[in-house]
């Protein structure tokens, strides 16, 4: 019986190939646009993750802090916020010297003015502006601490950018979802109306709505699958061309690819069920 439904879906596809190809190419175009944005969002996410990894809090120590006090502070910070690395006054000067690079300028400074510090690599859950702000405030109240820096404005902007990408992806996702539903809905209406005679006969022979609808649903889901694979092929081609010509762009990861295909198929299924529930009531009296 299951084989029968697949045969019927294939028969419908062949008989109304014009409608079917129109649906596939419309869906492929929609999904390609969606995929382009996903690719952009994915690459932005990867970039933000890399930048986010470098977010750290620098805790400047008072000059009179003893080694014991410093070690206790390192342990406390590691426990509360993340692993801390000690940078001595000399190390800080060496880094500064390397960055400045001009020996004459460095010689004009009599004494090393840089304080020793602890660089705290914050835990992932603290990598956002409000959490970092609060952490900095708490750490600055420790008696051993002279000052705390964490690039607040920069972190805030990074968070805003990340939120903007997420909102954009959601908006584009919603628009594409609606487009998929619209395309499948209308394609199936056309297909069923083109086969009105058959649907009427089946209904009069006692076919249930489910029996009549199943081949149409299979056809819609298969069209969405083909369209999604076509769109992924186009995106892969674009990514390869872009990588060769312009700049390194990573392709969607496997979970994203799977999600993309499954989402297209699920949306097609939903649209098909919606269209058929309405059109069968009109046709199969």
């Amino acid at each position: 019986m299951r084989l029968y439904f697949f045969r019927e879906a294939w028969r419908s596809f062949r008989k109304h190939s014009g409608i079917a190809y129109t649906a596939i190419f419309s869906l492929a175009a929609t999904l390609t646009l969606c995929g382009l944005f996903l690719l952009l969002a994915h690459n932005a996410q990867v970039a933000l993750r890399l930048i986010g990894d470098r977010r750290e809090m620098v805790v400047y120590l008072r000059d009179d802090v003893t080694t014991e006090q410093r070690d206790a502070l390192v342990a406390r910070l590691a426990e509360l916020y993340g692993g801390a690395t000690y940078v001595s006054k000399q190390q800080a000067w060496d880094e500064f010297a390397q960055q400045v690079g001009d020996p004459q300028l460095l010689e004009s400074v009599d004494q090393n003015p840089l304080p020793a510090s602890l660089r705290v690599r914050l835990r992932p859950e603290l990598l956002n502006f409000p959490a970092m702000q609060q952490a900095a405030k708490q750490v600055s109240e420790f008696p051993e601490v002279e000052d705390v820096r964490y690039g607040g404005e920069w972190v805030r902007r990074l968070d805003e950018l990340s939120a903007m990408f997420e909102a954009g992806a959601l908006a584009v996702g919603l628009v594409v979802a609606l487009a998929i539903v619209f395309v499948i809905y209308n394609t199936l209406r056309l297909t069923v109306l083109a086969r009105r005679h058959q649907v009427e006969i089946m209904s009069r022979l006692g076919a249930t709505d489910r029996f009549i609808a199943t081949p149409f649903v299979i056809e819609a889901v298969a069209e969405a699958l083909v369209a999604a694979l076509l769109a992924l092929g186009i995106l892969l081609g674009l990514q390869q061309a872009f990588m060769r010509q312009v700049v390194s762009v990573v392709f969607l990861s496997l979970p994203w690819v799977a999600g993309f295909v499954v989402a297209a198929m699920v949306l097609a299924w939903l649209a098909a069920m919606l269209a058929l529930s309405r059109v069968l009531r009109a046709v199969g009296s």
Binding site: R11, H197, I201, R204, L205, G206, A207, T208, D209, R281
Partner: peptide, 24 residues
Amino acid sequence: ARAKRALLRRTLGIIYEDFRLLND
């Protein structure tokens, strides 16, 4: 209901003047 109507029609054999066969 639609499901019951389908069930009813399966208990009948219907012949029409215009045959109503599927031509494909």
